[in-house]
Design a protein around this nucleic acid. Sequence first.
DNA 1: ATACATGCAAACATTTTGCTTTGGC
DNA 2: GCCAAAGCAAAATGTTTGCATGTAT
Lengths: 165, 165
Amino acid sequence: MRLPANVNWSFMTRPTHTNQSPLKELSLGAIVELLRANGMRITKNRMQILDTLLRASKPLSLDEIQRRARVAGDAPDYATVFRVMTLLESLQIAQKVHLNRPCSYYELVNPQQHYDHIICTECGRVTLMIDSCPVERVERKIGKQYGFSEIRHSLEFFGKCPECT
Amino acid sequence: MRLPANVNWSFMTRPTHTNQSPLKELSLGAIVELLRANGMRITKNRMQILDTLLRASKPLSLDEIQRRARVAGDAPDYATVFRVMTLLESLQIAQKVHLNRPCSYYELVNPQQHYDHIICTECGRVTLMIDSCPVERVERKIGKQYGFSEIRHSLEFFGKCPECT
DNA sequence: ATACATGCAAACATTTTGCTTTGGC
DNA sequence: GCCAAAGCAAAATGTTTGCATGTAT
């Protein structure tokens, strides 16, 4: 059952930067403050990427983030987008979402609100579930029953959306 | 909100082979029968891969499937493993599981039983949740509230397992 | 002035495909 | 014998890194 020990699994969720001050609300100001508090510099690229993520109504791929972060024909390098997203992920400001596609999609984590996704298997449209999360209660049960701690989850629904039916 | 129309999303879940007879139980016999019913040939490679998947107690990567399907020093080609898994996926006999790792992991779909996963963020160990699925009720709600049909879901929990705590 | 962030290019890992040969039916 | 499946090799895709240069602090 145990996977190979020589594999480094830590990159999955463990922050590479110790994040002492968790995000209080999902706003540009709060994020900038948190970056500063962690010794990160506020650059034009980072502002444009954060602005893009805040405007997005669905998870974005690195490619989409790069294209949307373009200002006056000037887009950040792909590697920069990658590094910024890796950074935001490690600070638990952003997270990956699994859409059953060959590349990764990212969204900002809203500490106030948890949303799960419904992905149309026909057109790929992503709908956010605004309902209260159906599994939060289960997380507590897992802690007790299986002895896990620091539990997070990833939940996606797939189906045919009304327009594709 | 709508994603680019020129993208082909269908590969995500839509079977490429029309599967007329859904699996009744998760056994080698039932799967072979289903393959035959869909005009697929029964080969040594396919038998070894199916046997591997049936024995597995956790989702396996293509690489792991190939290594485990080895019989007398003779392993199926990696491309063959890939094609067989794509086939099984399209017939909805197998499915991908997202473990937040750079490659895909597969498991057989048990029509009798649905299991969700708990993945340790430290050691990568995968635990199956044998409890009744916490979100089946939600699926019905999504049908009504959002108008989706043919709803499936993917649910993974992440946390520190007892031994890693 | 210093150290972090960036752009560019190259390396890497994984997935996917083309094509010829093999083998199930 | 026919056509699907397999093996091999190469291409395509997406992710990640090294290093020289730029820039926030």
